[in-house]
Design a protein around this nucleic acid. Structure first.
Length: 843
RNA sequence: GCCCGGGUGGUGAAAUUGGUAUACACGCAAGACUUAAAAUUUUGUAGCCGAAAGGCUGUGUGGGUUCGAUUCCCACCCCGGGCACCA
């Protein structure tokens, strides 16, 4: 393997001391900070550099310190950011703190320490930990959602919503825990009990601030087509928005003597209209109250409604639960298609806030209606016939045809041929949906599952909602010049018995003057949910210190939209949807230049504890990164988290495996002993390096970090076989390593005599001719089984490949005395010789 | 129930267009170095049969398509995540 001829004129380099991660990492972190290496430049106008905006979800600074999961996401985007810089982009990779939230507040309740103080302490810890990992964040743009200079603009945006009528107050029922004295979100109620204390939850009527996200439902759905999100993320967003098209049909009512009331129903299956055997209203439907005086079983109905009210939403919507209902006796609905009179029921399986809060029930073709009709003995009328079943007796069960097993259920929810449907008989049900809708005077409409966003919390640690309640003028927004409405200090952070925020107890703060009439007024004491600050933070990074606007339009024009946003799957529904909503609203006001905030969104898999459980403080299985940085270094930790498995999948932590990547770094360090100054033009060496450039570059773009690291390891294994490596090839290898393990890369790069830092060097470009192989291993198969192989030059002709395969000694014994049926030749890959075989049984 | 992932050695996992299954790493075993250990290093490491050469089996299960299937098709089982009576 010696390359004597190359040794002429090559000088060896100074010897390096042993690899000392602590010294090296501290040195380069200091260097980057001193040199402001990763500060993005705001550029405007024609001369501006091409920009790249890389974003990670800014962390919630919890008391537990940085989670190894943060490191996975941050390292991934750091690798991409560093590669982009090397490719000549002006990169913005910012960081901040999403610091409002319950854990901090609960800690304050317990200890009496101000949330602001706790937050300061926690962000200091997070900052130190993140800096110790060498992420190339632009620290000069650090933001904090709890900073009044930041939440001033969160409040300002809220006021814009208010002015456009998209922020409004609404009376609604909330889940109330009588022990914790707190309103709970539906997600916080488990089996009708408080998630925290386990006590049964009550319902309370309360005025809540709402944001009208439903006004944007259509665009939030449609515009997913214009962005580059992972398909499963788009699907999740679409499911959450829940767009559905169908018909709104009107049933006339007969209640007592002549009634002029009507019931509007929403259905996606107007084609089953002739099969309607009853109509169901949600118990909360406003018409129910109007019917009450005329119905025969008033008491029974009132009792039923009272029972339903007691249930929580979770109980009521539990799919496993048996449906219940009661007939409104004396009330009939008239089917607009055939004037048939059908009974009207109320039932818990119909939701008040979806569609029209009323449905037409077709038990023959809807499973829920089927279940309900069976239970209460209601009529079932078939109007659609499955294509395949059209000629089969209705009691037939079992095989139909050779392949399909059709079990005939009495409830058929598919499309088919229409029967018992008057003039529509014989037609295909799918095709006439719209026709049947218009024939009965119905409308074709779009509905969404998405509900308006409950935007108020009765808690302390959030942005105060910047309005006052005036006796004369009602709700009056705080003038923009008076923003921010600062959170006052309180003694006790515990929510009150009345369900009000602790802010309500500070009369000095609450009692104020109306901005309009200067008369007495009370401040709004509700605060915003912690989704608020994170709904626009990426815009603030463009101009984080601006006092006149949330960001200068010129900066926004240059930096938005975010080019690549990575975060956890847990935020791909709500946070992503909320921030897209805010962004679209700001876009409509002409305040941001794009209609979508993020061009590309990817997600990383969760890191689980050793054994596959979730990491949690209570289980005591949380990995503290500090210890790992201390013992093996940030570079090893970064490399391990990239190597541990596919980036988008959940994966269990295994401390033992860090040893492997640490060894790898030490071997890269040791390889430096073989490096000589200059270029050797060793073709074999160049080929190895150019293949690595291609593989590592491609893998980074596709977030296949695990195989990128593996490619670096394979490359190292190859390089170790050489006696001498020239500094140019070694330098290129170090450049490929640099985004993953930046500290050791800087050190080795400098040791090669480079006067400028590695992160300023341009990303290596591979030569396709060098990256390509000039020979290929051709597999020889007999009847599809590998029997041998030979090496051939690339692109050898099929004829020649077949000839060589046939003469291969390994194939000879299999071919002896056999007749060749056919030969398949795949250039550069394999030759498969298929024999006419009368001895062996055909597989 | 519906939607989205995934199932490959003792372990984490690779296989980019249907073409050498198990790359890379951990662990383990044996050897070298050492007084010894650690570290380092060399070799081996899917299972079964065999002294070896070699052969057979093998990517959750059962079928199918193909000269050839981890990859494509059909049916099913299991694990993870999301939604959940949305008419």
């Amino acid at each position: 393997m010696k390359k004597k001829s190359n040794q002429r004129g090559l000088t060896s380099l100074n010897k390096l001391p042993a690899y000392d991660h602590k010294k090296i990492e501290a040195k380069w972190q200091k260097y980057w900070e001193y040199k402001k290496s990763f500060q993005a430049k705001d550029q405007q106008g024609e001369a501006s550099l091409k920009k790249f905006y890389a974003l990670i979800e800014f962390p919630y600074p919890s008391g537990e310190g940085l989670h190894v999961g943060h490191i996975r996401s941050n390292t991934a985007m750091d690798i991409i950011a560093r590669k982009r810089r090397a490719e000549g982009y002006n990169v913005l990779y910012p960081i901040g703190w999403d610091a409002f939230g319950l854990p901090t507040e609960n800690y304050a309740i317990k200890t009496g320490i101000q949330p602001a103080v706790v937050t300061k302490k926690n962000t200091d810890i997070f900052r130190r930990q993140l800096k110790a990992l060498g992420f190339s964040f632009d620290w000069s743009r650090e933001i904090n959602t709890t900073d009044p200079a930041y939440y001033k603009w969160t409040q300002w945006i809220f006021l814009q919503f208010f002015k456009k009528g998209l922020a409004y107050k609404k009376k609604m029922t909330i889940n109330w825990c009588p022990v914790d004295l707190i309103g709970l979100a539906n997600e916080e109620v488990i089996d009708g009990k408080c998630e925290r204390c386990g006590n049964p939850v009550e319902k309370r009527e309360k005025e809540q601030w709402m944001l009208a996200i439903t006004k944007y439902a259509e665009r939030l759905d449609k515009d997913l087509d214009t962005v580059d999100f992972l398909e499963r993320i788009k699907t999740q967003q679409r499911n959450w928005i829940g767009k559905s098209e169908g018909a709104e049909l009107t049933f006339k009512i007969k209640a007592g003597t002549n009634s002029d009331k009507q019931i509007k129903v929403f259905t996606t299956r107007p084609d089953t209209l002739f099969g309607v055997t009853y109509v169901v209203l949600a118990p909360e439907h406003p018409l129910v109250k109007e019917f009450l005086p005329t119905i025969e079983n008033k008491e029974e109905v009132e009792k039923y409604i009272a029972n339903v009210k007691k249930e929580t939403d979770i109980e009521r919507t539990d799919a496993g639960k048996e449906k219940t209902g009661v007939e409104l006796k004396g009330v009939k609905a008239v089917n607009p298609a055939n004037n048939e009179e059908v009974p009207v029921w109320i039932a818990d399986y119909v939701l008040a806030d979806y569609g029209t809060g009323a449905v037409m029930a077709v038990p023959a073709h809807d499973e829920r209606d089927w279940e309900f009709a069976k239970k209460y003995g209601l009529a079932i009328k078939k109007v659609i016939l499955h294509e395949i079943l059209q000629n089969i007796p209705s009691d037939y069960r079992g095989r139909a045809g050779n392949r399909d097993v059709i079990v005939i259920s009495d409830c058929f929810t598919g499309d088919g041929k229409m029967i018992n449907s008057g003039k529509f008989d014989g037609k295909n049900s799918e095709a006439i949906k719209k026709e049947i809708t218009t024939s009965v005077g119905g409308k074709w409409v779009t509905t969404f599952k998405l509900r308006d966003w409950i935007f108020s919390r009765q808690r302390y640690w959030g942005e105060p909602i910047p309005v006052v309640h005036c006796e004369l003028h009602g709700i009056v927004p705080v003038p923009e010049k008076d923003l921010p409405v600062k959170l006052p200090k309180v003694k006790n952070y515990k929510p009150t018995e009345t369900g009000e925020s602790p802010l309500a107890t500070i009369s000095k703060w609450v009692n104020t003057k109306c901005p309009q009439c200067k008369g007495p007024a009370r401040r709004e004491t509700d605060t915003m949910p912690n989704w608020a600050g994170s709904s626009w933070y990426y815009l603030r990074y463009a101009d984080p210190k601006n006092k006149k606007a949330f960001a200068d339009p010129k900066n926004l024009k240059y930096w938005t939209q975010v080019d690549w946003y990575n975060g956890g799957m847990e935020h791909t529904t709500l946070h992503l949807l909320y921030s897209r909503f805010w962004h679209k609203f700001l876009f409509d006001l002409g305040l941001v230049p794009t209609s979508e905030p993020y061009q590309k969104r990817t997600s990383h898999g969760l890191i689980l504890a050793q054994g596959g459980e979730k990491m949690s403080k209570s289980k005591g299985n949380v990995i503290n990164p500090d210890g790992i940085v201390e013992t093996v270094g940030a570079d090893s930790l970064r490399l391990y988290e990239m190597f541990m498995g596919p980036f988008d999948q959940p994966i269990a932590w295994d401390t033992n495996n860090i040893a492997g990547v640490r060894r790898f770094i030490e071997r890269v360090w040791k390889l430096r002993e073989k490096v000589v100054q200059g270029r050797t033009l060793d073709l074999k060496l160049q080929k190895i390096i150019h293949k690595a450039i291609k593989k590592v570059s491609d893998d980074i773009e596709a977030m296949r970090f695990n195989t990128a690291v593996s490619a670096l390891m394979i490359t190292l294994n190859e390089l170790e076989k050489f006696e001498i490596i020239d500094s140019e090839q070694y330098g290129t290898f170090i450049q490929l390593l640099a985004p993953f393990a930046p500290h050791v890369a800087e050190e080795l790069w400098a040791s090669l005599g480079n006067k400028t830092a590695i992160h300023t060097a341009s990303w290596p470009v591979y030569d396709p001719a060098l990256a390509a192989d000039f020979e290929a291993t051709i597999m020889v198969q007999i009847n599809g089984k590998v029997r041998g192989s030979f090496v051939a030059p690339m692109n050898l002709s099929k004829e020649e490949l077949e000839k060589r395969a046939r003469t291969l000694p390994e194939s000879a014994k299999w071919l002896e005395g056999k007749e060749v049926k056919k030969v398949i030749v795949i250039p550069n890959k394999l030759v498969n010789i298929v024999l006419v075989d009368n001895n062996l049984a055909v597989r």
